[in-house]
Design a protein around this nucleic acid. Structure first.
Lengths: 208, 208
DNA sequence: ATTTAATTATACATTCTGTATGATTAAATT
DNA sequence: AATTTAATCATACAGAATGTATAATTAAAT
């Protein structure tokens, strides 16, 4: 009942370890061709753990998927985002770094993320988590756009929300997934998105 | 066993009528806030029909969803597409008409289509139907792009597949859904997409 | 009059999620 | 050392949903 925050090293370590094993198992199942095998039972079996342990650690399937998304975000090195904002030289450069960071993240676990998004679109318990992440990405773009408008010619009050929504759309997983197609590299996709994004905020590169 | 193609007016009409009622019921359930109510049982109850009748008419849930997509496409007046290609004046005009036709379709049943796509991403039996539709849209864009390159300065063999994938991405439901946001009109979204599409194929509008 | 398409009733098999109850093991606390 | 408690597991069960099997019924078509 009362959570203790001290001196439970071994127990916490044990719990964290099994959580890790379960997440790895869930990830593996979601990455497989037949991803319908992602059942609580299959996850438990693959993690070599009782099914009840999965419920004990993650409460529900939605909880497991939510945790899985965090797990992937860590592996995709999304912490780098904060650094991008800190070193604020050119807002346009920040935008491009932002786009590339997300492109690398989407590419890091493309199939799994696609399936997680699909599951989030179906399960009303998973949806809020995805929406929150979407909102965070949007807010990041809002900051960048504001910085941009202070340096470059500002957009009209009518154009600004359009630009923001367009950037939000361009940096989405769905956009990345469509552009990556069958084998286009992350860098290529990043370049395409950057070009469209520049156009969306009214930036015209000098003629070649 | 042997399908008869003559003189079964009343029976066919009866069958078609119940199919219609079932599809309307499924549509209504998928449009509701709590769309998890889309069960074969609920559909049957709402259509005032036995649950087995639903299976008799559509085989499975995947079959019902597939039929529902066709039902929506008809209501969304997607037949107009053929006409757009026939009156081939300016390829750029054709592209814009193409974009607007899809924008109107996506808008015609936005919530339902969003949920159908999510279900298609989860259910491997529904996925093929959605993929086929995606391919048809892609092929339409391919034709338009080819016509465009014959009139306007052609794109390099490297740029062309990029342009095609970008157009495909821009005309997707996901793009429309993101840009429409909360209350942006179809025309506005269409304008935004057209602008991005022009840029994707290297078309530069004359300076204002 | 007979066949057959469409519908319905009842029942059942299967698969998943989630909960209830209680036992076991080992770490942490006193 | 004795006790408490976190983590795990076993068994069982409830409930929802898809899909199948079998057979009966109604009305249209032959």
């Amino acid at each position: 009942m009362t959570p203790r925050t001290y001196g439970m090293a071994k127990r916490q370590a044990a719990g964290a370890q099994t959580r890790e094993r379960i997440l790895a198992a869930a990830h593996e199942l979601l990455a497989a061709e037949d991803f319908t095998e992602l059942t609580m039972d299959a996850v438990a079996r693959k993690a070599d753990v009782s099914r009840l342990t999965v419920y004990y650690q993650f409460d529900s399937k939605a909880g497991l998927l939510e945790a899985l998304y965090n797990y992937i975000a860590k592996r995709g090195q999304m912490e780098r985002l904060a650094e991008i904002f800190r070193q604020s030289n050119d807002p346009l450069r920040t935008l491009h770094d932002f786009i590339l960071t997300f492109a690398r993240f989407w590419a890091s676990d493309r199939n799994v993320i696609r399936r997680l998004h699909a599951l989030g679109g179906v399960d009303p318990e998973v949806a809020p988590g995805l929406l929150a992440r979407n909102q965070r990405r949007r807010h990041g773009l809002e900051v960048i756009l504001e910085r941009y408008c202070r340096v470059y010619p500002p957009l009209s009050p009518i154009q600004e929300p359009v630009a923001l929504d367009t950037l939000h759309m361009l940096t989405s997983f769905e956009t990345f997934d469509a552009l990556a197609g069958e084998g286009r590299s992350v860098e290529e996709v990043g370049k395409i998105v950057c070009k469209q994004a520049d156009h969306a905020i009214g930036f015209t590169p000098r003629r070649v």
